[in-house]
Design a protein around this nucleic acid. Structure first.
Lengths: 356, 356
DNA sequence: CTGAAAGCGCTTACAG
DNA sequence: CTGAAAGCGCTTACAG
C-alpha cells in the first residue's frame, strides 16, 4: 500500500557515492570533502529524502519516542483541564527536542497491565513520564524493577527518594493561600482538600500549620475532601457551607468552580460574602472568575522540566534521583487592602502577582 | 545503557530450534509440530520474551503507531475538555487494537511544518487522525497530496467529499435545541455560534431555519459568535444580554459555562429567568449545572469510530471516502411541561433523554 | 514441518 | 576522506 520511499542507497547511486557516505552527510559527520557534501546535500534537498527512523532505531537501539502514562486510577479525572495543560508542556519540549510523544491512557487495570508489559519489553519506548497515583497497585514501584528511565509528575507516595520526580512546592503554595486569607482578617477558614495524592496531603498540612501559627483553632467541620473533579468540589462545598466558613481554600481550580456553583445556587456572592482561593494553572479560557484568587501552579512548566530530566536519564547524564520542585505564585484578581499588601510583601514578594 | 533484551535467536537456541521456527510460533503460523510449539511457548512464557517491534516494523513496513494531530490553529483551545474526551475515545480503541497512539500538538506554524514533514517521510506513523480546522493553510489539503491514510474529526471545510471524516449530526442537533426552546414558548431565542468550523456553520443555519419555520423573525442582535472557549462565551453573552433574549442556544458547553458566569454576575437565574441549551459531551464531572439542558455530542465515540475507520484505510479495506455522521441527543435536566413532551415525542423521540 | 538465507534501511568499525 | 562489509532483530520465500 505505502509508496516506496527513497533510501540511502538510492541517494548514493544518484550522487555517485556509497550509502555510507550519504549516511555521514545526513548525520553531519565532520570529515567529508566539501564537493561531495554539497552534491549529496543538494540531492537530499531536491528529493526531500528523510532517513527511515525505524531502520535507524534498529541499529541505535533508540527510538526517540517517549511515553506519557496516565494510570487507570487517574484516567477518571483525565477530563480535568490539568491534563491538557500538562500535555501542552510535555508536547512543546518534546517537539523542540525532536522526540515523539506517545500517550498511554488506561481505562482498566487489564489494559494497564497488558500495555505496560508491552511498553517495557518491545523496545518501542525510550522513557516514560508517569503521573503519580497513590493506590496500592501503583505502577511506580513496578517501574523501579525495570531499567526503563522514567520521571514522575508529582511526588510519588512510596519511596520518593529513589525516584525522579517533578513537583510544585505545595507546602509554600498552601501557606500563601492560607496566610492570604488570614491576613484578610478571616478566622473561619475552610479547606476543600484531597486524599488523592501527596499534593493534597501537603496542602492540607500546610493549611493547618498556618492556622496554628495564627492561633486559629482547627475546626474539622471546615475540612472537606474532593477528588479534583468539579462535582466533588460541589459536594464538598455542600458539607462545608452549613458551618458558615468566611473563606475557603479549595485545592484545585476545578473543585473551586464546582464549589462556586453551590454558592451561586445559595445566593452567596464571591468574594463579598465568602472568599475563595483556588489552586492550579488553568489557561485564561477557564479563568472567567475574576473573583477567584488562585495559587498558580506551573503545570505546563512541570511537563517541560519532566521531559528535560527524562532526556538526561535516557542519555545517562544523571547518577542519583533528581527532585525538581517548582515554586508557585499567589495570583490576586480582586482588590486587596494595604495591610494585606504589607504583610505579603514581607513574606515572599516575588511569588505574589496582583492582577486587578 | 539499556539492558540487552532476549532475541528470537536466543529463544531458538534454548529450545533447540531455528529462529525462523520461533518466529512462526510467535506469529501463530499454523503448521508447526505440537511438541515444538509447546516447548517454544513454554520458553517464551518463562523468559517473558516479547518480539522487538522495531525490527518487526522494518520488515513489515508497518509500525502500528497512529498519530493524533492537533493543528496549531486548534492548539489554543486544546485545554477545552472536548480534547481529553476525544483522546479517551481514540486511546480506548487504539489500546484494544494494539495500536500505539502518538500525539502531535503544534504550538506554532513552524513546529507544525517541520513535524508534519517528518511524520510524512520517516516511516514512523501508519496513519493520522486530524482535528478539522478551517484556516487557509489547513494541513488537510496538504495531506491529500500524500499517501498517508488519515481521518478527519469533524467535516473539513474544503473538499469534504474527497476525505474520510467522522462528524456528528450538527444540523439535527441544532434543530432539536432550537425546537426545544421554541416549544417552551420562547420567541426571543438567541444563539452563541462560532465561525471556527463547519459544526458552527451547521448549527447556526439550522437554528435560523427552525426560527423561520416557526415564523419567528431573525434578530441579528441575538446572534453572537465565540471560539469555543469559556471567555469567548462570556464575551458573547455580554453582547447578547442587553437585547434581552428569553433563551439562548450556546453551541458548546464550555461557552455556555462562560456565558452563565455573566448571567450570574447580572443576577439572572437559569433557567427561571433565561433558558440555556448547551452542546457537547462533557463528562459528569463538568456537568454540575442541572439547569443546563444540552445537546449531547458523542465525542468519545467519534474518536472510536475514527480509529476504526483509520485501521480500515491502513489495511486498504476502503475504496472511496467514508463519511460517518453520528447522531446527537437532547439531554433535558430541568423539568418540562406536557406540551413540550408531546411535541418532542412527535419529533424524534429516541434522540431525547430526560434526566430529572 | 523446519532451517538456511536473503533482505528490510540504516550505522559504524575497519581498511585503505 | 571513502567504501565494502557486518550487523541491528526480525520475517518469509525457498528448499528440503
Amino acid at each position: 500500500l505505502k509508496l516506496k520511499k527513497l533510501t540511502l542507497e538510492e541517494i548514493g547511486k544518484l550522487a555517485g557515492v556509497s550509502r555510507a557516505t550519504v549516511s555521514r552527510v545526513v548525520n553531519d559527520y565532520p570529515h567529508i570533502s566539501p564537493e561531495i557534501r554539497e552534491r549529496v546535500e543538494k540531492l537530499i534537498a531536491e528529493t526531500g529524502y528523510q532517513p527511515n527512523v525505524i531502520a535507524r532505531s534498529l541499529v541505535s537501539d533508540r527510538t526517540n519516542i517517549i511515553g506519557l502514562v496516565i494510570p487507570s486510577h487517574v484516567a477518571t479525572v483525565f477530563t480535568d483541564p490539568y491534563f491538557p495543560r500538562l500535555i501542552q508542556g510535555i508536547s512543546h519540549t518534546s517537539n523542540q527536542s525532536k522526540l515523539t510523544l506517545s500517550l498511554f491512557l488506561f481505562h482498566s487495570r487489564e489494559e494497564e497491565e497488558y500495555t505496560m508489559k508491552s511498553i517495557l519489553n518491545t523496545g518501542l519506548i525510550d522513557g516514560l513520564i508517569v503521573t503519580a497515583d497513590r493506590k496500592e497497585d501503583s505502577i511506580i514501584p513496578r517501574l523501579m524493577h525495570h531499567n526503563m528511565p522514567f520521571v514522575v509528575i508529582g511526588r510519588p507516595d512510596t519511596r520518593p527518594d529513589e525516584v525522579n520526580f517533578v513537583d510544585t512546592d505545595n507546602v509554600a503554595g498552601a501557606r500563601m493561600a492560607t496566610e492570604y486569607l488570614v491576613s484578610l482578617g478571616y478566622r473561619r477558614i475552610g479547606i476543600i482538600a484531597s486524599k488523592q495524592n501527596t499534593a493534597g496531603d501537603d496542602r492540607l498540612v500546610s493549611y493547618m500549620k498556618v492556622l496554628e501559627q495564627n492561633n486559629i483553632p482547627i475546626d474539622k467541620n471546615l475540612i472537606a475532601y474532593g477528588d479534583f473533579s468539579m462535582t466533588s468540589g460541589a459536594e464538598a462545598m455542600k458539607t462545608l457551607y452549613p458551618h458558615r466558613p468566611e473563606a475557603v481554600f479549595v485545592c484545585s481550580d476545578s473543585m473551586a468552580m464546582g464549589a462556586m456553583t453551590i454558592l451561586q445556587e445559595a445566593g452567596v456572592q464571591v468574594p463579598q460574602d465568602m472568599a475563595i482561593v483556588g489552586y492550579d494553572d488553568l489557561p485564561p479560557a477557564i479563568q472567567v472568575k475574576p473573583a477567584l484568587t488562585t495559587i498558580h501552579q506551573p503545570i505546563a512548566q512541570s511537563g517541560q522540566r519532566a521531559v528535560a530530566l527524562l532526556m538526561d536519564l535516557i542519555n545517562g547524564m544523571q547518577e542519583r534521583p533528581n527532585h525538581i520542585i517548582l515554586p508557585n505564585k499567589l495570583i490576586i484578581r480582586s482588590s486587596c487592602g494595604a495591610a494585606l499588601m504589607n504583610k505579603l510583601n514581607d513574606y515572599i514578594s516575588e511569588d505574589i502577582v496582583i492582577e486587578v
